[in-house]
Amino acid sequence: MKSMKTPRPPSDWEGEKCRHITAKDQWSLSEIQAQLALFDGWSVQTSAQEGKAISLWRSWQPGQFGAVKAMVDCTCQLADQEDHHPEVTFSYGAIEVHWSTHSAGGISDNDWICAAKLDRLFKGLNSVET
């Protein structure tokens, strides 16, 4: 029997490092919903066909392209440091980031780690408004 994952605050995830993940590490929808309650602004995207979580995502609207560019740069640096790479889309005044662990087939610890670290990085950018 699979043990239920315990929700943790973002500050707990910030100290973690991404690792190799397999399908057994995938979070269930109920586990994700409990964890999301501790992550302001983040949502889950689900597959309509399979009814499972496929990505953890969030958008920011800093309003200025310079701020968006800095956020994209921070995201890329974090992705390289953690060897966990998101889907990133951006426009003049907005950025959207989707974390997903393909080897797990959905959301894993690695996605929570990167979401927490990205939130911390973005809070350090003075011009970012969420």
Rank of each mutant, 00 (worst) to 15 (best):
M1Q: 10
S3K: 12
M4W: 12
M4I: 14
K5R: 09
K5F: 14
K5L: 14
T6C: 09
R8F: 04
P9R: 00
P9E: 04
P9G: 03
P10F: 04
S11Q: 11
D12I: 00
D12K: 06
W13D: 00
W13A: 01
E14A: 11
E16D: 12
E16K: 10
E16L: 15
K17C: 08
R19I: 07
H20F: 13
I21K: 08
T22V: 12
A23L: 13
A23V: 15
K24D: 14
S30K: 13
E31P: 06
Q33P: 01
A34F: 06
A34S: 15
Q35N: 06
A37E: 15
L38A: 02
L38S: 01
F39T: 05
F39Y: 11
D40R: 14
G41I: 09
G41H: 10
V44P: 00
T46K: 13
T46L: 03
T46H: 03
S47G: 09
S47E: 06
E50L: 12
E50S: 09
E50T: 07
E50V: 03
G51I: 10
I54H: 02
I54R: 06
S55F: 05
S55L: 12
L56S: 03
W57A: 11
S59C: 10
W60K: 03
Q61L: 08
P62M: 01
G63M: 03
F65S: 05
G66W: 09
A67S: 11
V68K: 02
K69P: 01
A70M: 12
A70S: 15
C74M: 13
C74F: 11
C74V: 06
T75W: 00
C76S: 13
C76K: 07
Q77R: 14
A79G: 07
A79D: 07
A79V: 04
A79F: 08
D80L: 14
Q81L: 11
Q81E: 13
E82L: 08
E82K: 02
E82D: 07
D83Y: 13
H84D: 04
H85F: 08
P86D: 03
P86I: 00
E87H: 12
T89W: 09
T89K: 11
T89N: 14
F90P: 00
S91C: 08
S91M: 09
S91Q: 10
Y92M: 10
Y92N: 07
G93N: 08
I95H: 04
I95S: 01
I95W: 05
E96Y: 05
V97Y: 06
H98E: 14
W99I: 02
H102V: 15
S103R: 08
S103Q: 12
A104Y: 01
G105Q: 06
G106M: 06
S108W: 02
D111A: 05
W112T: 00
W112D: 01
I113W: 03
C114L: 01
A115V: 02
A116W: 01
A116L: 05
K117T: 02
L118P: 05
L118N: 00
D119Q: 12
L121V: 05
K123G: 08
L125Q: 08
S127Q: 12
V128F: 02
V128S: 00
V128R: 00
T130L: 13
